[in-house]
Lab assay of single mutants.
Amino acid sequence: SPEEIKAKALDLLNKKLHRANKFGQDQADIDSLQRQINRVEKFGVDLNSKLAEELGLV
């Protein structure tokens, strides 16, 4: 269901964000992850996106 997909995506992105902060990645990478999280919260996951591929939806 779209809600489950959204939850999985947010979980994955939050893990990536945590790792980025923990290991001191570029601020641009961290900002990009934050924008992705905001986009998923607002609009859900686009099944044509790279994120959908990472989640194994495509």
Score class of each variant (00 low, 15 high):
50 K>P: 14
44 G>L: 02
41 E>W: 06
32 S>G: 08
28 A>C: 11
54 E>H: 05
44 G>T: 00
24 G>V: 05
35 R>H: 09
18 H>E: 14
46 D>C: 11
9 A>N: 00
47 L>K: 05
10 L>I: 08
32 S>Q: 12
29 D>E: 15
33 L>V: 05
52 A>E: 02
50 K>C: 11
10 L>H: 01
8 K>N: 05
16 K>H: 04
47 L>A: 07
33 L>T: 02
47 L>S: 06
42 K>E: 11
35 R>V: 08
48 N>A: 09
13 L>Y: 00
9 A>K: 00
11 D>S: 10
31 D>T: 09
45 V>L: 12
18 H>F: 13
9 A>M: 06
15 K>W: 08
51 L>Y: 05
39 R>Y: 15
50 K>H: 09
23 F>Q: 09
22 K>E: 10
39 R>L: 14
47 L>N: 04
7 A>E: 08
1 S>M: 07
37 I>Q: 01
58 V>A: 11
56 G>K: 05
16 K>N: 03
58 V>N: 10
4 E>K: 07
20 A>M: 13
3 E>G: 07
20 A>K: 03
1 S>Q: 07
2 P>Y: 14
2 P>V: 10
1 S>A: 08
33 L>K: 00
18 H>S: 13
20 A>Y: 12
37 I>C: 02
14 N>P: 00
9 A>T: 02
12 L>F: 13
40 V>S: 01
54 E>D: 06
34 Q>P: 01
29 D>L: 15
42 K>V: 08
50 K>T: 11
11 D>A: 14
49 S>K: 02
45 V>C: 03
41 E>S: 10
14 N>R: 15
24 G>P: 07
58 V>C: 10
21 N>Q: 15
28 A>N: 10
17 L>S: 00
38 N>M: 12
8 K>V: 06
12 L>I: 12
57 L>K: 03
44 G>Y: 02
32 S>N: 13
52 A>R: 03
1 S>L: 09
50 K>E: 12
32 S>W: 14
43 F>N: 05
6 K>R: 12
38 N>W: 13
45 V>M: 05
24 G>N: 09
47 L>F: 08
8 K>R: 15
15 K>F: 05
55 L>E: 01
54 E>K: 04
18 H>C: 14
37 I>Y: 04
42 K>I: 10
27 Q>H: 07
6 K>L: 07
40 V>I: 12
16 K>F: 05
47 L>W: 08
26 D>Y: 06
19 R>W: 15
30 I>F: 04
27 Q>Y: 07
18 H>K: 13
7 A>F: 09
33 L>P: 00
5 I>T: 06
19 R>G: 04
1 S>Y: 10
4 E>G: 08
21 N>S: 12
16 K>C: 12
9 A>Q: 01
11 D>K: 11
34 Q>F: 07
18 H>T: 11
43 F>K: 03
29 D>C: 15
48 N>L: 08
50 K>V: 10
57 L>H: 03
30 I>K: 05
53 E>H: 12
17 L>K: 03
11 D>G: 05
16 K>Y: 07
39 R>V: 10
52 A>Y: 08
43 F>E: 08
23 F>N: 12
10 L>W: 00
25 Q>P: 05
40 V>T: 04
54 E>G: 03
4 E>I: 09
4 E>F: 11
49 S>D: 05
10 L>P: 00
40 V>E: 00
28 A>E: 10
41 E>Q: 13
4 E>A: 12
7 A>W: 10
12 L>R: 05
47 L>D: 03
35 R>G: 06
6 K>N: 05
45 V>P: 02
46 D>N: 08
42 K>W: 07
56 G>C: 06
31 D>M: 07
40 V>N: 01
57 L>Y: 07
33 L>M: 04
23 F>A: 09
39 R>Q: 14
10 L>S: 00
13 L>R: 00
53 E>T: 09
37 I>M: 04
23 F>D: 11
32 S>K: 14
8 K>P: 00
32 S>H: 12
45 V>N: 01
49 S>G: 06
54 E>A: 07
15 K>C: 15
52 A>P: 02
56 G>V: 04
14 N>V: 10
49 S>F: 03
25 Q>I: 12
37 I>R: 03
22 K>Q: 13
33 L>Q: 01
28 A>G: 10
1 S>C: 13
18 H>V: 13
33 L>N: 00
16 K>M: 14
9 A>S: 02
25 Q>R: 14
20 A>N: 02
17 L>H: 01
20 A>S: 04
43 F>Q: 05
55 L>A: 02
5 I>K: 03
47 L>H: 05
37 I>N: 00
29 D>A: 15
6 K>H: 03
37 I>W: 03
20 A>I: 06
28 A>W: 09
11 D>Q: 13
4 E>N: 09
35 R>M: 12
18 H>P: 00
10 L>K: 02
48 N>W: 11
43 F>R: 03
23 F>W: 13
28 A>K: 11
16 K>A: 09
17 L>P: 00
14 N>D: 03
15 K>Y: 06
21 N>T: 15
29 D>M: 15
15 K>S: 10
39 R>D: 15
43 F>A: 04
24 G>R: 07
58 V>S: 12
22 K>F: 12
28 A>L: 08
39 R>P: 00
7 A>C: 10
29 D>Q: 14
9 A>G: 04
48 N>I: 04
45 V>Q: 01
38 N>Y: 10
34 Q>M: 15
44 G>M: 01
18 H>R: 14
12 L>G: 01
26 D>V: 09
9 A>Y: 04
41 E>K: 14
6 K>Y: 04
46 D>G: 05
34 Q>K: 14
50 K>I: 08
54 E>S: 06
23 F>R: 08
34 Q>I: 15
10 L>Y: 00
42 K>Q: 13
40 V>A: 02
30 I>D: 02
41 E>F: 07
24 G>T: 06
2 P>H: 12
1 S>K: 08
57 L>F: 11
22 K>G: 05
14 N>W: 15
21 N>D: 04
7 A>R: 14
20 A>R: 02
5 I>S: 05
18 H>G: 07
1 S>P: 06
7 A>H: 08
8 K>E: 04
2 P>Q: 12
49 S>V: 02
2 P>C: 15
45 V>G: 01
42 K>M: 12
35 R>T: 09
2 P>K: 11
56 G>R: 05
53 E>L: 14
44 G>F: 01
31 D>P: 03
57 L>M: 07
2 P>S: 12
45 V>E: 01
23 F>G: 06
35 R>S: 09
58 V>T: 13
45 V>W: 02
26 D>S: 15
38 N>V: 12
30 I>L: 06
33 L>C: 02
41 E>Y: 09
7 A>N: 10
21 N>G: 06
40 V>M: 03
3 E>H: 07
7 A>T: 09
33 L>H: 01
42 K>G: 04
12 L>N: 03
26 D>G: 11
27 Q>R: 10
40 V>Y: 01
21 N>W: 11
10 L>R: 02
21 N>M: 15
33 L>S: 00
53 E>Y: 13
56 G>Y: 04
52 A>L: 07
41 E>G: 05
8 K>H: 06
32 S>M: 14
35 R>W: 08
27 Q>E: 06
11 D>W: 12
21 N>K: 15
53 E>S: 09
43 F>H: 09
41 E>D: 05
56 G>E: 05
57 L>P: 02
11 D>V: 10
3 E>A: 11
32 S>A: 14
40 V>K: 00
24 G>D: 05
16 K>G: 02
28 A>M: 10
55 L>T: 02
56 G>L: 06
7 A>G: 06
3 E>V: 06
57 L>R: 03
48 N>G: 10
36 Q>L: 15
48 N>M: 10
43 F>S: 04
26 D>Q: 09
27 Q>A: 10
48 N>P: 04
56 G>P: 02
29 D>G: 08
51 L>T: 03
29 D>F: 15
29 D>V: 15
4 E>Y: 12
35 R>D: 13
21 N>A: 12
13 L>V: 00
17 L>V: 03
45 V>I: 11
57 L>G: 03
26 D>A: 13
34 Q>G: 03
3 E>R: 06
46 D>Q: 08
1 S>E: 07
21 N>F: 14
17 L>Q: 01
23 F>H: 09
33 L>G: 01
27 Q>F: 07
52 A>H: 03
34 Q>R: 14
6 K>W: 04
23 F>S: 09
